[in-house]
Computed example of a mutant assay.
Amino acid sequence: GAYVMFWWCGAEERRLILQRFAVSREVMQTSVEDVFALAAAEGWDDPVARKALQFIERRQRNRAAIEKSPFADLEAAVMAAATQGLSRELVSEIGYLSGVKPLTAAKIMGDPGGEPVAILCKATGLTRPNLRALWRSMRRPETTADGAVHPDWERVQLTYEMLAVDRAQTVLRYWNWSLSSALTPTLLRAIRDGEDEAIDEYSAPERAAALALADNFGR
Rank of each mutant, 00 (worst) to 15 (best):
E42Q: 10
E67W: 06
Q169C: 13
N130D: 15
Y174D: 13
L158W: 14
E142P: 03
R63F: 02
F55M: 12
A37E: 15
L213P: 04
I56T: 14
E161P: 06
W44A: 03
R136Q: 13
I191M: 03
R173I: 11
T159E: 01
G113I: 05
Q157F: 02
V78Y: 11
L131N: 05
D200T: 13
W135N: 07
T170N: 13
R59K: 11
D193I: 04
R59P: 00
S98H: 06
K51R: 13
E89S: 11
A123W: 02
R59E: 11
G194D: 06
C121D: 09
A37C: 02
A11M: 10
A49T: 13
R189V: 08
P116S: 05
L187Y: 01
W7D: 00
G113N: 10
E142T: 13
G218I: 03
C121Y: 01
D193N: 15
I108H: 03
D111R: 01
M162Y: 06
S203M: 10
R14V: 01
T170V: 09
Q84H: 13
G113L: 06
T127H: 02
A82Q: 13
S181V: 01
L90T: 07
V156K: 07
T159I: 00
I17G: 04
F6M: 06
E33P: 02
S92K: 14
D166L: 00
A209D: 02
A214G: 03
D146Q: 12
S180G: 01
V149P: 10
F71A: 03
Q157C: 13
A168K: 10
S24A: 14
L211H: 12
E201R: 11
I199S: 08
H150S: 05
I199M: 10
G125D: 00
L18V: 09
T127W: 00
T127R: 05
R59S: 08
A118G: 13
A164E: 15
H150I: 06
R132T: 10
T170G: 10
V32S: 09
A210I: 12
P151V: 13
R132L: 07
T144P: 05
I108P: 04
A145T: 07
L74I: 11
G147W: 06
R50M: 03
D200N: 11
A106K: 05
W8L: 12
I191S: 03
E75I: 02
I56G: 12
R25K: 14
E26I: 13
A81K: 05
N130G: 07
D152T: 08
E161W: 08
K122T: 12
P129R: 02
T143E: 11
